[in-house]
Computed example of a mutant assay.
Amino acid sequence: MMIAHINQLTLIAGISLGLILRTIPVSAQQTVTCESYKYRYQFCRVNTRGGVRLVRQLSNTRCVQGETWDYDRDGIWVDKGCNAEFSVRGRDSGYNNNNSYNNNNNSSSGDGTAAAVVGGALVIGAIAAAIAGGSDDNSSNNNSSSDYPTITCNSKDNSYTLCPVDLRGRRAYLERQLSQAGCWEGDTWGYDREGVWVDGGCRGIFEIRG
């Protein structure tokens, strides 16, 4: 009886969350491919004000943020042979969808069906996170494949969390996302001289570079 009751509550919560999210505009997202042709610098103009995340490296050359790729508010740049797919989220309608390097425009603003799906995904993610349990610690990592020191930072209970680390004169980069929730620089994660902060359920491994 208890299990059945929990299942009913989960179903009700998922449906309710989906209905609530129908009234909330979902930020437009798209996948962009940007290639450093013949190892030359290439700038791919796209709205990046909601953040950029490297989804899949397509080149043999390693794509390292801050070295062979990065972005500003006007777009993404690649260099030295980096070719990759990037997930881009915009906060307004300023996407430029006429460029050849934009493979997919998956805008979902105002789409109630997509919002309901997001609601269900959030419930499933919460259940999965509860099952996974025991991996919420914020700590430095010694077993990362990165050549740089790293720190794992977790937004516990989807709330703002600061993971202290001395970043004076250094920068933090997202090496790997560990959460179902998206980790978007300037939105759900960032850093200052006191350390790396995360919010909105973001959990990831962050490189600390000089």
Score class of each variant (00 low, 15 high):
Y148K: 11
R168P: 10
L11N: 06
Y37D: 07
I151T: 09
G204I: 10
N104D: 14
S109R: 12
S27E: 15
E207N: 10
L58G: 02
I12N: 04
D111M: 09
S144V: 07
N143K: 13
G204S: 09
Q8P: 00
S59E: 00
R203F: 05
F43Q: 02
D72G: 13
L9T: 11
C82Q: 01
G90N: 10
D70Y: 09
I76Q: 00
N98W: 07
R45E: 15
R89V: 15
S135M: 08
S87A: 14
M2F: 14
E194S: 13
H5E: 12
C34A: 04
V64M: 11
R203M: 11
G81F: 01
L58D: 11
S179C: 05
N47D: 14
V196C: 03
L178K: 09
G18M: 01
N142L: 08
C202W: 04
V196D: 00
L54V: 06
N99K: 04
D192G: 11
N102S: 06
G66K: 03
G112L: 03
R176G: 08
S107C: 09
F43T: 02
G120P: 01
G134M: 08
R193S: 13
N60D: 13
W69E: 01
I208D: 03
L167D: 07
L58C: 03
L58S: 03
V64N: 05
I76F: 04
T10R: 08
C44E: 06
N98M: 04
A115Y: 02
N7F: 13
V118G: 03
A129F: 10
S140I: 10
A114S: 10
N154D: 15
G195R: 01
N154S: 13
S144C: 11
S146P: 02
L17A: 04
G18H: 00
Y173G: 07
L174F: 09
T48E: 02
R56Y: 14
D79H: 08
N7P: 01
P149H: 03
R49H: 09
K80W: 08
S27Y: 12
D147H: 13
L174P: 06
G94T: 05
R171A: 09
D187C: 02
D199F: 03
Y71P: 05
A181T: 09
W184F: 12
Q8M: 07
Y39Q: 14
K80S: 10
N102D: 06
N83C: 01
N142M: 05
V117M: 13
I127H: 05
C202I: 08
S107T: 12
I208R: 01
N97S: 05
Y95F: 15
Y173T: 12
A128S: 11
V117E: 02
M1D: 07
G75R: 00
C153K: 08
M1L: 07
G182E: 13
N47K: 11
C183P: 04
A172S: 13
A121D: 09
Y41L: 07
N47A: 14
S87K: 12
G120M: 12
N83S: 12
